Simulated scan of single mutants.
Amino acid sequence: MSDLARRDELAANLDAVRRRIEAAATAVGRDPDEVTLVAVTKFFPASDVRLLAELGVTDVGENRHQEAQDKAAACADLDLRWHFIGGLQSNKAAAVASYADVVESVDRRKLVAPLNRGAHERSHEIEVLLQVSLDPPGREGRAGADAEDLDDLARAVEEAGMLRLRGLMAVAPLGEDPSAAYDRLSRIRADFVAARPSADLLSAGMSADLEAAVKAGATHVRLGTAVLGPRPRN
Rank of each mutant, 00 (worst) to 15 (best):
A93M: 08
V112H: 04
V171Q: 03
D107E: 14
V57H: 08
A97G: 08
T225A: 08
V38Y: 11
D191G: 15
V49N: 04
V106P: 11
E158R: 05
P232F: 00
V227E: 12
E62A: 03
E22P: 00
G87R: 14
E140A: 14
D77N: 05
D151P: 00
L174I: 12
A218V: 09
L153D: 09
V103E: 10
L78I: 08
L55A: 06
A16C: 01
L210Q: 04
G86C: 09
D15K: 12
L55N: 07
Q89G: 08
L201D: 14
R7Q: 15
E9Q: 15
D48A: 12
V17Y: 05
M206S: 03
A199R: 02
A11T: 01
L129I: 08
P45V: 05
V40H: 01
R122N: 11
P32W: 05
R64P: 06
A97F: 02
R20D: 05
R164M: 06
S123K: 13
S186R: 15
G86V: 02
D107R: 02
E127P: 07
A74W: 03
P178D: 01
R139F: 00
A194R: 15
L37W: 13
E9P: 01
P45M: 09
E127S: 15
D152Y: 01
S123V: 08
V103K: 06
R142A: 12
A119E: 07
